[in-house]
Design a protein around this nucleic acid. Structure first.
Lengths: 352, 352
DNA sequence: ATGAAAGCGCTAACAC
DNA sequence: GTGTTAGCGCTTTCAT
């Protein structure tokens, strides 16, 4: 009892396969025949096989998005707005997570290769030749998201370097000298650019960098927790932390809470984007903010234009600025900080 | 210059299509021929067309998940663990969001119908006959997620009724009588069950229900914000709010903040699950907690067993309990609350 | 071990 | 306006 095909429909309706197809595709068919086909369709419960359709038609009306991880609140807006635009244009949006693992990236890319008409993706493929080969072999329009495209290709980039620079200027202005940076793997663009901005700002302000303050491995909140804990527990603790990642804030906040430190008295903090969390905790967290809504619009529209061949073939690189939203998590470093906080955390932990 | 096919490979290698196919599928081929095919593959940059493969083989090695919305932090764990298990078993996981819109549900279901071997889904189809027809017409294994299956079908259900009952018992125990419930659309199981639990608990404690305290339209945080604001602004304000939804907490917290009320002095709060947010805000929020990790494991394994025909065909219904995690957002209602909080909010707003 | 050919379900070109 | 048929790219008989 497998699914009925168009042949079954034709047979039951007593017409040819071609006529059945024409009814399904709303092409002109004499009413009497159309009625028979329609009734055959409903008695059989026929649905066209999308696989066979795509195979014949050479398009799928599907767009694939590959992202690192679904736990990134900022991506939610991005996906939602992209979905609305693409769905309006008649496409179905399918998502896959790479979990930042090269083998899964390749898998997903392959899965999408013949199952989608276009792709929006964040990949770390650059690191891995095998994945990069898969990617470059794709014969469909691809919009790279926050990744430097290896060859001639559309990309939407976020100005992380400038954003980090702004954040550091702000902290230097408050008098900080020991500023930690926690971000993801430097092999991918976002972290790499942030580190650049971090170094630039230090150079500009004539502050020497303590490399122990730069923590860069992955973007998870678990990693953020571990590194924050380590930084705060070290003898020569930073006076401020900048989080360069979009899902790391919970880990950093947990660590600060666990260490019984106060924001901003004991430690200043600039968070990655997480609109809800950063506004709802006490004190609200100053953050480097990116307009993911606008990025979603741009990515979807650019992809649609490519799909319709409506723009010249030279690759488009679009850059989005970030904005430092100042809330209440930063203050000047207290010069007597070190001794004072030791005392306070002692006092605190003794009364629990 | 379209993508090379297996025919191109065969031609370049000077072998038959069948032999090329055998090389690709690791079947025994004489080394000399195999070498020629391999070199043809790499010079052409050939990749098999997954569409054609699936069409021929009748399977796709793909699992689809349809959820309402990606903004639900709890789903993230669910998806992540399901992905790990399914990926281990050789499947690629593709996600789609229905945005709670029937027409999109139908679209997604159709898209998955011939593009996936199995489905995990949360649908409100029950409301919409057209969607339900699409669903019931699916000829692949489906695990329903937190939805009462219409016909004989596997499902994983969460004990929302019992969870809500527990939450209310706790609040009644603290002395609350006016308890608001904010949850999603009652046409779907989760909200319906929560309302049941709410009514049961009231009946049990002999407390009459003020229907104005039950707010049930959708699960978005924007809706939660609006309803919380309305409830708090009303003359006869509740003394406690229970949030019955997994992504609503930010909206509720924002509203309480905007109204300048304090938790738990002015208003007690029990939140839906959002592990990070509920633990990191001040005070930490008591919550009805569900183990989405375990649910992900169960869903993935059940689906795999179905795909392998390894279990008897009678539908499995698996129920997961929730747990009330008591933090610090609930306190007895203050009898003089009304006058007092009016004063406080006046004082506060005057010093901003 | 290999080649020739059928056929998965569909649409479109062609003939009537 | 309708029926017949080729062919999308692939795997798998069936011969050899």
């Amino acid at each position: 009892m497998s699914k009925p095909t168009i042949r079954d429909v034709a047979k039951v309706a007593g017409v040819s396969q071609g006529t059945a197809s024409r009814v399904i595709n709303q092409l002109p068919v004499k009413p009497a025949l159309k009625a028979r086909v329609d009734s055959a369709i409903s008695t059989l419960g026929y649905t066209p096989n999308a696989l066979a359709q795509s195979m014949r038609l050479k398009y799928t009306r599907t767009i694939g998005i590959m992202i690192r991880d679904f736990s990134v609140p900022a991506f939610v807006n991005f996906v939602k707005v992209a979905q609305n635009i693409l769905s309006e244009a008649g496409y179905v949006l399918l998502l896959a997570a790479s979990e930042d693992r090269p083998e899964r990236e390749a898998e997903v890319l392959n899965a999408f290769a013949s199952r989608a008409d276009g792709l929006i993706l964040t990949t770390n493929a650059a690191r891995e030749n095998s994945v990069e080969k898969t990617r470059s072999n794709l014969s469909l329009p691809v919009i790279m998201l926050d990744r430097e495209p290896a060859d001639r290709q559309d990309a939407i980039l976020i100005a992380h370097r400038e954003g980090m620079h702004d954040a550091l200027n702000y902290l230097f202005g408050l008098g900080h000298k020991r500023i930690a940076l926690i971000t993801g793997n430097a092999s991918a663009r976002p972290a790499r650019e942030r580190i650049l901005g971090y170094r630039e700002a230090h150079a500009e302000h004539g502050v020497e960098i303590d490399d122990a303050l730069i923590r860069t491995r992955n973007f998870s909140k678990e990693y953020a927790f571990a590194e924050t804990t380590a930084l705060l527990g070290s003898g020569n603790r930073p006076t401020a932390i900048v989080v360069g990642g979009v899902a790391m804030l919970p880990g950093v906040l947990r660590a600060i809470k666990t260490c019984n430190l106060r924001i901003p008295e004991d430690i200043s903090l600039i968070g990655g984007t997480d609109p809800d969390l950063s506004e709802l905790v006490e004190p609200p967290v100053t953050a480097i903010q990116v307009d993911y809504h606008a990025i979603g619009v741009e990515a979807a529209q650019l992809l649609l234009e490519r799909l319709n061949n409506r723009i010249d073939p030279s690759p488009r690189i679009i850059k989005f600025d970030s904005k430092l939203v100042i809330r209440k998590s930063c203050a000047p470093p207290s010069s007597t900080r070190s001794a004072e906080t030791e005392l306070r955390s002692l006092r605190r932990s003794s009364d629990t």
